[in-house]
Design a protein around this nucleic acid. Sequence first.
DNA 1: CACAATTTAATTGTGCACAACTAGATGGCG
DNA 2: CGCCATCTAGTTGTGCACAATTAAATTGTG
Lengths: 152, 152
Amino acid sequence: MSATSAEDFLRLDQQICFSLNAASRAFNGVYRVVLKDLGLTYPQYLVMLVLWEHGQLPVKKLGEHLRLDSGTLSPLLKRLETAGLVRRERSARDERSVEVRATEQGLALRERALQVPRRIVAATGFDVEEIRALRARLDELTSALDSAALDS
Amino acid sequence: MSATSAEDFLRLDQQICFSLNAASRAFNGVYRVVLKDLGLTYPQYLVMLVLWEHGQLPVKKLGEHLRLDSGTLSPLLKRLETAGLVRRERSARDERSVEVRATEQGLALRERALQVPRRIVAATGFDVEEIRALRARLDELTSALDSAALDS
DNA sequence: CACAATTTAATTGTGCACAACTAGATGGCG
DNA sequence: CGCCATCTAGTTGTGCACAATTAAATTGTG
């Protein structure tokens, strides 16, 4: 029996990182097409999903849901505000915090967005159970990678 | 039995796209840490992997391996050239084409890169077989998404 | 051969991810 | 109370992804 060489690992590694990268970008591509009608980018859509589900919440909480910091969210929210989909207001109680909420127009957009998921699921060619299994696997991977990133 | 509503789909969809996005970014984070010593970003590392494996090749071919176009590769390659890791030369036979190859310094970097894959695999907490299975699943997903993107 | 269609890189412009830093508000502690 | 550590957004700078366009070389066809 032969030990796995560094060369072999290099090849394996290439395949897993290529695969994840490619899948992620392919997903982005499909979302781009589907969301074009709504005038949203994929990260903007994720923000709207959180706002539709949770209502008004501070940028900080939004960032926790999406694992994004203010460096990404501030300009993105500014664009959504310019588009008339969200409002940002300094909290009166804690002036460090900025509360974000969907406008009337932003809430109205939700009706059209209801069609999106079905089209995405269809594009994957996977059934609901397969998606659930893959998602669970990816979540395991994420938490392993996150904890590994801490000790380094 | 109840049909799956658009609301339910919206929730499911949210989870799968969140999961894939999070996994992809978690991977990027680990690579960022591991590659810091080598002075490479993750996409630059992917380019070097292809060059190490295939030797000299035109930008076009490089892009096919990585699913990237010249809009991404041109500036990236320029940075690698500034760092002294690659050389770019107009092909004599076909002056539309630019041949890219690793320099001595770029080839030398490979020795240090041999340690990278082991560290990444370790960070995932998955064994070789699990990674292989996940990769296969992701590749299925990618080709399904790619063909779905075509008819739209 | 002449000329139109195609191919290949590069450029431009928009948007996202993330690190590093700044500014202002808050809360705790002596 | 006064001050300092912490917290929250925002800003700046770098790099990547991708669409659209441009420029130049090549290929195919009449």
